[in-house]
Design a protein around this nucleic acid. Structure first.
Length: 643
RNA sequence: GCCAAUAUAGCUCAGGUGGUAGAGCAGCAGUUUCGUAAACUGCAGGUCAGCGGUUCGAAUCCGCUUAUUGGCUCCA
């Protein structure tokens, strides 16, 4: 039997050998750190018995693709084994490796407490020390079902029943624990070096809220203590950047329990940032041919019946009144049907198209109570909303321009490197969620995919993520904890124009339905602010800093001077503050830094010539003697240059 | 909505097993007029998230509600 290694060398073996034997043959040191192997493109466990010649034999260490997963997957089995030892009546569900660790779901009487996690960790330590070999075996379906029934593992029985007819049903056994599992795994439990259980939480069996809620334990594992420590440290650091903490500390926003969930109060500094963003967006859109609209925050149910929201989105709306008893109104969850009325205001010609409508639009969505999170998920938010109404011939160009605008915004905010693109499609097996025929959907999706491909957007496709009226391009961003959210979306809609009887007279004199592009250029201001806080850890780019320059006085003798500088700066549109408090200047500097003020000047009290004072800028070692105007000029120059 | 944890002064946190609330910082007043990460003294600040129950007596025990956090589900 011949085994070809990545360097091209070929080794020959006789008889029964495992992947691990080959790895050992390469080097004992390598065998110690190997987690799995890739045999002709397939990731396998080290205990895999080798059959026939192998053209590509790659050893996977912890940091290689596949190696980490095997390592953490085994860690999750060790955890499950520990749980079964401590709570023999616990039923095991599934326990995969995930991006930064692993989890395992259990059906237990009582949810796990933090103390339970410690106990489980200790038990895991014993299992690792006992160093059980992890043995793989396969069973035919009947025997597999019999084994799992005997072990009284109903979730595993369900999983086996759902496996395709021809599936290989494999199990992994380590000591007193056997689990239905596709693998691959480490060769023995003793291989796991450092691990940590992070949290316990409820999770629905198979991810459906209709199913029982199981108890999930999240953990992580690394091949050395140092990396584990670094990872845990990173989690701590992420907490410090969390917009929900930092945004409150910096007095950007707050919440009040008697106002309610998902209804943040933007404090003056936070509101200032949003105002800056909003002005920037509105001006930029105007430059690009958008017409500003201002439409009502609510409408009668009639409007939503036309748009389809009444049937497809009612649970998500704040409805006032009962439309069976009389009139019902609802706060708007989207701007589309309102902005369409602008187009419908009079008869339109193809010459009016494309019509680009923009609006800084406040929306209301009755999110489920457990969903709200800081500024990321709220019940009232303001979005840079817009709809482009155009002809089929214009769609590609307009879509491209909308995407360009979005990218321009992301670049300006410094977020462009942090986003990924998702082409959100419908789910043809869940048709009640959507309006329109399967043909409509196929056509629109194919059309949109072509646009995306033409624009060379690096997207991944996801099913069931579309809006109820059409597919979307979602621009996704990860928050500081690695959780992904949609920041920006651009959608192509062939359906609502027809529902709203939107028409234009084409050059051939025929009435036609336009196509609508739903788009946002910067997303929701609240969410964008949240991501900016985390991106910059509160130290915003100068043009977005709520306070751009702060003058700190040493004694009362310099107060007047500082006030003059501040007023000169304000008159130039620079956001300046003075701190004349009777405190040590070091203390005032510390506070100004904590507030993330980009320009700090310490105003001395040495008057060399009349009308001047000694000033030292942050980071400088020397004083400069300046008039208020000279100092204001200097700060203004710096601030404007930084923009 | 579901599973859990948490809620004490503006902030960070103390207050075993029930006996009526405390510190540091911030705030205010005074002193100090000071040169790059915390000057000094004093004062004030609380329906212990809210409501209800048990009790002679509840921050503490029990129930409900609200909010926050971590997940699940859902979504911009």
């Amino acid at each position: 039997m011949k085994v070809t290694l990545p360097d091209g060398s070929v080794r020959e073996y006789e008889g029964k050998i495992s992947a691990l034997d080959v790895v050992r043959d390469i080097s004992e040191g390598l065998a110690r750190v190997a987690c799995a192997v890739k045999i002709d493109g397939e990731v396998k466990g080290l205990t895999t018995e080798l059959i026939g010649d192998i053209e590509e034999f790659v050893v996977l260490k912890f940091d290689d693709d596949g190696g980490k997963d095997a390592y953490r997957h085994t860690s999750s089995h060790i955890m499950a084994q520990a749980v079964k030892r401590l709570w023999p009546e616990a039923k095991v569900a599934i326990g995969p490796a995930i991006e930064n660790g692993f989890y395992y779901d259990f059906d237990v009487e009582k949810p796990f407490t933090p103390e339970d996690l410690t106990k489980i960790e200790d038990e895991m330590g014993k299992i690792i020390k006992e160093d059980y070999p992890v043995e793989r075996f396969e069973l035919p379906r009947e025997e597999a079902l019999k084994l799992m029934s005997e072990m009284d593992e109903p979730y595993k029985v369900e999983l086996i029943n759902d496996l395709p007819e021809d599936a290989v049903i494999s199990f992994y056994k380590q000591g007193d624990f056997t689990d239905l599992c596709a693998g691959p795994h480490l060769p023995s439990t003793g291989k796991v070096r450092s691990y940590k259980l992070l949290s316990a939480a409820g999770a629905y069996w198979r991810g459906s809220e209709k199913n029982k809620m199981l108890q999930r334990i999240y953990g992580t594992a690394f091949d050395n203590k140092k990396d584990l420590k670094a990872y845990l440290n990173m989690l701590e650091e992420a907490k410090k950047r969390d917009h929900n903490k930092l945004g409150r500390d910096l007095e950007l926003f707050t919440t009040v329990d008697y106002i309610g969930q998902g209804l943040p109060i933007l404090l003056p500094k936070g509101a200032r940032i949003v105002q800056l963003l909003q002005r920037f967006v509105e001006d930029e859109e105007q430059k690009r041919g958008y017409l500003l609209t201002k439409t009502p925050f609510m409408a009668k149910s009639d409007l939503y019946k036309i748009s389809g929201h009444w049937d497809h989105y009612r649970d998500g709306m704040f409805v006032m009144g009962d439309d069976e008893e009389g009139e019902a109104f609802a706060l708007r969850p989207m701007t589309c049907p309102f902005q369409f009325q602008v187009f419908l205001n009079r008869m339109r010609s193809y010459r009016d198209l494309p019509m680009r409508l923009g609006e800084t639009s406040t929306l209301f969505r009755n999110e489920a109570s457990g969903e709200m999170h800081g500024l990321i998920r709220v019940r009232q938010f303001t979005i840079s909303e817009g709809h482009i109404i155009c002809t089929p011939e214009q769609v590609e160009q307009e879509f491209s321009e909308a995407l360009k605008l979005a990218k321009f915004m992301l670049e300006t905010l410094g977020l462009i490197e942090d986003v990924s693109y998702v082409f959100a499609k419908w789910d043809e097996n869940n048709r009640e969620k959507y309006i329109g025929s399967p043909e409509d959907w196929e056509n629109t999706q194919n059309f949109m995919r072509k646009i995306l491909d033409d624009l060379e957007v690096d997207y991944k496709e996801e099913e069931g993520e579309a809006a109820f009226y059409g597919p979307k391009l979602d621009i996704q961003i990860k928050n500081v904890h690695g959780k992904e959210d949609t920041l920006i979306t651009v959608q192509v809609d062939f359906q609502l124009a027809e529902r709203f009887k939107m028409e234009y007279i084409d050059s051939d004199g025929q009435k036609k339905h336009p196509i609508v592009i739903h788009r946002t250029s910067i997303g929701c201001y609240e969410r964008t602010l949240a991501l900016l806080i985390e991106k910059y850890a509160g130290t915003f780019p100068v043009w977005l800093s709520p306070v751009q320059a702060k003058m700190l006085t040493i004694t009362d003798r310099s107060n007047e001077y500082a006030a003059e500088v501040a007023s000169l700066l304000e008159s130039r549109g620079i956001r300046a503050e003075i701190d004349t408090r009777n405190e040590k200047v070091g203390f005032k500097i510390r506070e100004a830094r904590n507030e993330r003020v980009p320009y700090i000047a310490v105003i001395g009290d040495k008057e060399i010539e009349e009308g001047t004072l000694s000033v030292r800028m942050r980071g400088k070692k020397e004083d400069t003697i300046m008039t208020p105007k000279e100092l204001a000029d200097k700060i203004a120059d710096d601030v404007l240059n930084k923009n």
